[in-house]
Simulated scan of single mutants.
Amino acid sequence: MSCLKQTVNVNKAELMKNYIKKIFAMLGILLFKVQGQIEDRTLPTFATYPKRLKINLPRNIANPQHIYIGDNVKFGPGCFLLALTEYPTSKMRNSEFNKATQKFNPVIKIGDNVTATAYVQISALERITIEDDVMFASNVFVGDHQHGYQSAATPYKYQPIWKINPITIKKGCWIGQNVIVMPGVTIGECSIIGANSLVNKDIPPKCIAVGSPATVIKKWDDQSQIWIKS
């Protein structure tokens, strides 16, 4: 009898474990659905009305009325879309360093089918254009400006923004992990920027560029349909 009782107790314990697993699975699915609804319902109003737009939480979006987004765009968590209309912002001001506020009229334009894995920061004071079908990996920074460093006598965060120059990332590009794209850069159509690269000059179309600064190492040959070492 004791063996039978032990078997019954083991079966009950297994049933309870399975029941708890099912409850947690159902709660996970429910939380996922609720999070998706919150993400969708709390999106700001952009300059366009994109279809099937997904930007996961957490996210930081500044001045969405200056941001133009195409259809079927998906950005993972931790992304920043910053169309900055003034500098310093209210959070950056310090009465000890009372400098005139710079005013800007920025545009961020994102085409159709653009995707970003996570933690991508796009920061514009003038214009950043990302054309259709561009793919970003994680931790990418794209900024069309730099903090000023005209003087070493004043903290750099209180110096005027300078070197403002538009950025264009052409159709079909792949921007790898931890890439930085500097002001004034155009990355040509269907080019690849390798991980950990710093792009401070134009990259031609259909090229692979890597390094800091990024240098073209391969070019696509339309005739032979293969990548050729540069």
Rank of each mutant, 00 (worst) to 15 (best):
I180S: 11
P77T: 07
I29H: 08
M135S: 14
K206C: 12
P77N: 10
K74W: 13
N60Y: 12
L84S: 11
V142G: 05
L198S: 11
N9A: 15
K91V: 15
T215I: 05
I167D: 10
V10H: 11
K171E: 15
N200P: 09
T42M: 13
S95H: 14
I192N: 05
E14K: 13
M1L: 01
Y149I: 05
G36H: 07
D40C: 11
P205K: 05
C79H: 07
K163I: 00
N139D: 15
M16A: 14
K229F: 03
I175S: 05
M135Q: 12
F46A: 04
I108A: 04
G70I: 12
K21S: 12
I67M: 05
A214W: 02
H145A: 08
G172L: 11
K54P: 00
P50I: 04
G36D: 09
A137N: 10
W162G: 09
K201M: 05
P58S: 12
N60L: 11
K99V: 15
K170L: 02
A116V: 06
K171Q: 13
V34D: 02
A137T: 02
Q146R: 10
I228M: 01
G76S: 07
Q121V: 04
T42H: 01
K33D: 12
D133F: 06
P213E: 07
N60P: 00
C190N: 12
C3L: 12
Q150M: 14
V179M: 02
I38H: 03
P106M: 04
K170A: 07
I122F: 03
G76P: 10
V181K: 01
L57D: 09
N113G: 04
K54H: 13
E86F: 00
I193P: 07
R52C: 12
T154M: 13
C3V: 04
K5G: 00
Q150C: 08
K103T: 15
F136Y: 13
V181Y: 03
T85F: 01
V8Y: 12
N72K: 01
G148E: 02
S224Q: 15
A47G: 05
R59Y: 10
G36P: 04
E131N: 13
N11H: 03
V179D: 09
I161P: 00
T186Y: 07
D133M: 01
L57N: 13
V73D: 08
T48L: 05
F32R: 14
K91Q: 12
I226W: 00
N196R: 09
N60A: 12
E86P: 00
A13C: 08
F136P: 02
G172C: 09
N178F: 11
P88L: 03
